[in-house]
Structures are given as C-alpha cells and as structure tokens.
C-alpha cells in the first residue's frame, strides 16, 4: 500500500491559522497599487510632554516595513494564497486606483488655491504674467508668516469671529482674507443720470456681492501700495509693500479704512434715494 493513501499526509497539509481572516476587502490601498513601499516611518524621538499632536507621534520605534498599509497588503497576499479574491474591485485593474469621489476641491486644477487667494492673485497680475503674480503672492504670505503678530486697534474692528492676533501669522491665508474682508465696503454708489434734477445724477447705494467687495477692497490696498516707496530693491519689494499694507490694515493704521467709511457714509446719506420714483423697477 503506497504511503500516500494514509491519512497523515493529509493532516500535514492542514495549516493552523493563528489570526482571523479579514472578512471584507480591506479599505485602503491594495498590494499592487502601492508605489510607496519605502520605509518612511517617522523617526521622531518620543516626547513625554505630549506637546505634539498624537498623529505626529509614533507609538514606538516600528520595525522596517510595518505600516498599516503594508499590513493590509500582506493580509491581501495571504488571502490570495488561500485562493480568495480579496482585492477591491475599485482598485483592481487600475494602475493608481479609482479616485475618491466627490473630488476634494483642491484636486481640481482651477480650485487648488483658496478662493480669496486666487482672486487676489489675479488682481496682482500685470501684463498677463500669472506665474509672477503667484510668486508675489507666495512672498506676501511668507512675509505675513514671519512678521510679528499684529497689534489690533479696537476702533477699527475686524470681522466678528476673527481669531486672536497671535494666531494670524501661522495661518497667512486667513490673515490676508481677514484683512481684505474687514475693510471691504458693503455697498457702492450707483449714479442714475439726470434723475436728480438739473442734469445731476441720482446716487443710489447698491449692495455688493462678496467677490465684488473683495475686489474693491484689494484695489484700494493696491492704490496705497503703488504710492509707497520701497525700502530696498529686488524682486521681493513689491510683495513686501503689499504685505506691509495688509498688516497696516489689520492694525487699523491704513488709509483704506477711511475710504470704506466714506463710502458707507455716502450710502447712509443717500439711502432715501432708494424710494425715488425715477428708479422704480430699475433696481
């Protein structure tokens, strides 16, 4: 009798699993879609003070090639070994997997930057040189990051809900947006020709949309900037002048605040014109 009909070789083929199968397809990258398989685990020394957020602290010094993604990939390889098909159908057959939907806005080429930043950068642009304007904007943000926190002026209040002053430099996008939104006028004066009598135009206050308000405010800021003198020379000078004016706006020193006040006063005095019979149905 050949020995292979014996029961024991069959027992030998049995394996004992020490860990449970992953029942469903694991979320996360699959084995064949991982192009990142280097050991780039953090080597930060563990700090007892806990000053860092927990996401930045490794639990311990992990051995090489042990990350969560690697673990998932190894599990999937084991399941393939057992003849199961653990691969996610959304990942299988695609070199880089399917994108997560809906796409986050920053993944879209045209929306990769903050809305205010995009608009203001285009206002900085001269002669159609967008790349230069973008570099200038990066320098403005950099200046805001490195300048000392602004000393707020209570008589020129910023938007309600603004963070405290010492938070601003570390979030320069917020800093810039806050400055622009705070000095932005709410209205503009629209003149209706010849309605005020004697050939004069009738000034009527009109509300502005957010984008229009930001545009007006930043044009005012640019007007001031273009009249300023540079301290130094070189390509950083224009962005530094803009950034200095932004700081001046937040600190309440800028003359842009007066312009805003002027527009608002004119709007208040002319609001009676809203009921003028000549413009009925025109607004």
């Amino acid at each position: 009798m050949p020995p292979r009909l014996n029961i024991w070789p069959a027992c030998r083929a049995l394996s004992i699993r020490t860990r449970a199968f992953a029942q469903a397809a694991q979320p996360g990258p699959a084995a064949h879609s991982r192009g990142l398989a280097d050991n780039t685990t953090s080597r930060l020394p563990p700090s007892a003070s806990g000053a860092l957020p927990p996401s930045m602290l490794p639990e311990s010094e992990p051995p090489a090639y042990t990350s969560k993604e690697n673990e998932a990939a190894l599990n999937q390889l084991r399941m393939i070994e057992y003849g199961l098909s653990p691969l996610d159908s959304s990942v299988e057959g695609h070199k880089y997997g399917l994108p997560e939907l809906p796409l986050p806005s920053q993944k879209h080429t045209k929306h990769r930057y903050d809305a205010v930043i995009t608009q203001v950068t285009k206002l900085l642009m001269r002669d159609g040189k967008l790349a230069k304007a973008q570099r200038d904007m990066a320098m403005i943000l950099n200046y805001l990051r490195t300048s000392p926190p602004p000393k707020l002026d209570p008589s020129k209040p910023l938007l309600p809900g603004a963070p405290p002053a010492h938070h601003l430099p570390l979030d320069p996008v917020l800093y810039l947006g806050l400055a622009i939104d705070s000095v932005a006028p709410l209205i503009r004066m629209r003149g209706f020709k010849g309605l005020a009598g004697g050939g004069k135009s009738l000034e009527v206050p009109m509300p502005l949309r957010a984008r229009q308000r930001r545009r007006t405010a930043f044009q005012w800021i640019l007007d001031v900037v273009n009249k300023k003198k540079s301290k130094g020379s070189g390509r950083t000078m224009f962005p530094h002048r803009v950034a200095e004016e932004i700081v001046a706006v937040v600190e309440g020193r800028s003359s842009v605040w007066d312009k805003r006040l002027q527009v608002h006063k004119a709007g208040t005095s002319n609001r009676a014109n809203l009921t003028h019979s000549g413009i009925k149905g025109m607004i």
Binding site: S230, K231, G232
Partner: peptide, 26 residues
Amino acid sequence: PPLPGERKAYRKRITLSNDNAIPVPW
C-alpha cells in the same frame, strides 16, 4: 533718498529666526 548701499543691504539682510514659528520640542 536712501543712502548708497542701503537698499542692497536691506535686500541682502539675513534673518535667522522667526518668533512666530512654534519651537520644536525634540
């Protein structure tokens, strides 16, 4: 007007620290 060399000195000045940056504990 700025003195001779003043604008260049402003351009070439070197700052070695930023008080806004968070001190790194480790």
